[in-house]
Design a protein around this nucleic acid. Structure first.
Lengths: 347, 347
DNA sequence: GTGAAAGCGCTAACAG
DNA sequence: CTGTTAGCGCTTTCAC
């Protein structure tokens, strides 16, 4: 381990001078400075961040707590936080609770979660983090919150009960509204919807957007055109079966997997997607770009969520007044091939 | 910030004693000890890890460098490393190079990569990591390696040129061999293969496994039954078209996406998968479980790769003799519904 | 049992 | 321009 002290010895100056030079603080003769720099290089000096931070009393680090890193949305969000941090010279430390792997969708054992979370927060605090980003693995109201936290925290892809802390999620409703509007613009009037479960936040929001688009275009909302799936492909197939028999010309599946189910149904019944029937999904999962015809879907601003969190967090760290609002980031419509004009525009 | 010193003041003992008690080192009267513990609790004492580690001269931390966190295999591997570390009281720090996002599949700009990597390693070293896991985003021979590294390093999902360092990958060949063997056991003799590009490590290995299975079962290898795709669904459709016309009864797609392409082709031509024709994929992507019929595929031991890396790394850190072998972890065959008996077992 | 002292690597304030 | 000193929070001898 090459230390400042060793360099000082070799160059016959004091540690302070070496420190100054290495940090570009000037205060050394041209010659000495060069000698020090060269020696540092030659001896492969690597500053010890632990010591530096201990001394400076600031870690320049924020903590990311993820509910589960292996769930599809999480890596992108972490990536966003990471990128933003890099850009502003901050660092991250990652704490993965592995909630999904441990408990799947069982969110009833609040106590266990609470315990895990508190341990995680404590751990982050031990690392002297200056703020924390909490990344949920699906959008929902969190019922457990850190018991004791001494730094700013911000929630991504979920939002805390009671709105005591800021949160960044995406705008489900407008995305669904835009997508439905696009279908209407293409001449579709009988548009089926394949929702997720009714108790899902996403279902509710997307349904609202769908309904608003219909309303604003003077189309009667027909509850018979709404089916409820469970986000799986097979539930999409089942819903498609029902919907297509009602004579819909377009189907809006609330996620890409269920949209694939619609594809499957159509393939079986030799309905040509984009011609005989239009289909849209949601989430922009890998498969949506790969299927044929490519699936029109909604891209989630995951990376932006991460970046926005970082920005808000650093503002909060900088003692700016924190507002505890929920920020909703817009999604982008990915118009691809699966939505075509209505085959029989005459109503 | 509650420090040991403050606790010492409050309890009228020295910092040394507080330290001893807090670390369960004994050397204090029952009464004093209890008082100290209580005070620490009450004042929400959180140990400062920076100071602790600086003093102890060991960080208990390993660094994970990922080529790109957002590529499908990476989070699982990171999760595996993380889990293993947690189990042995180690910590991780994550450094994401974002190679895929920055350059996509362009690995020609070696210099840039080299620079990024060196910066990353330097950064990790600054954090006093005791070892490094490098997570590639696809299996290949790495042409750039850290210029200077002073701690053990181990490669996951890729392997370094010249084999100077240990690596952990998975066993493509045996997985393909097992899968092909399964098809043969079900009576299939004309088995088509849809490979990835010929210059891919995965293609080569899997092809070897496929060929070995044929050979061991006395089936002539017919090059006409091998098609080359580019891992995308649409290339799977195209390959299926060719293969199925040759009269194959089973198709082994070298990834799930291309297998989905086969599904699509079959749906269009009303071929029933698992009955009229058997299909298998590789990778166990989400879609494979969701499609109908569910796709028989190969599960990649991603988490195990992470765990194995951690184990090997900690051994290396413990000064155990390091061997620089490539460890190949077995994949598991996920037998689902898409492979059925051969429709006309008479050859 | 308990505490004083020294020091991990680094920086900041101040003196020369 | 350069060095001395002190100290960040913690632990570890080694005396008492």
């Amino acid at each position: 381990m090459t230390t400042i002290k060793k360099i000082a010895e070799c160059t016959h100056v004091s540690a302070a001078t070496v420190s100054n030079v290495l940090n570009g603080k000037g205060g050394a003769s041209e010659a000495k400075a060069r000698e020090i720099l060269e020696t540092a290089q030659r001896m492969h000096y690597t500053p010890n961040l632990l010591a530096k931070r201990l001394k400076n009393q600031q870690s320049n680090t924020i903590g990311i707590i993820t509910e589960d890193l292996t769930v599809f949305n999480t890596p992108e969000i972490v990536d966003g936080v990471d990128a933003a941090c890099e850009a502003m010279g901050m660092e991250i430390i990652l704490g993965n609770m592995r909630l999904y792997k441990r408990y799947h969708n069982d969110f009833t054992d609040t106590q266990k979660h609470q315990q895990l979370l508190d341990k995680m927060v404590e751990h982050m605090l031990s690392h002297q983090v200056e703020g924390i980003v909490y990344v949920g693995y699906h959008c929902r109201k969190l019922v457990y919150l850190p018991t004791r936290i001494t730094v700013p925290i911000i929630y991504a892809y979920c939002y805390p009960k009671g709105q005591k802390y800021p949160a960044v999620i995406y705008d489900d409703e407008n995305a669904a509204y835009n997508l439905t509007t696009l279908m209407i613009q293409k001449g579709h009037q009988k548009i089926g919807a394949i929702c997720g479960p009714l108790d899902s936040f996403h279902t509710l929001e997307r349904l609202k957007g769908y309904q608003r688009a219909l309303f604003e275009n003077g189309i009667l909302f027909n509850p018979g055109l709404v089916q409820y799936g469970d986000w799986t492909r097979s539930s999409g197939v089942a819903a498609a079966e029902v919907l297509i028999q009602t004579g819909v010309t377009a189907v809006f599946a609330f996620n890409d997997e269920m949209a694939c189910g619609v594809y499957e149904y159509c393939a079986r019944h030799t309905l040509k997607i984009g011609t005989d029937i239009s289909v849209a999904g949601f989430d922009n999962r890998d498969v949506s770009a790969d299927c044929t015809p490519s699936l029109t879907t909604v891209n989630l601003p995951l990376e932006e969520i991460g970046q926005t969190c970082t920005r808000l967090l650093t503002e909060a760290i900088g003692e700016k007044p924190v507002d505890t609002e929920i920020t909703r980031l817009p999604c982008t419509l990915l118009e691809r091939e699966s939505i075509g004009p209505c085959p029989n525009p005459a109503k």
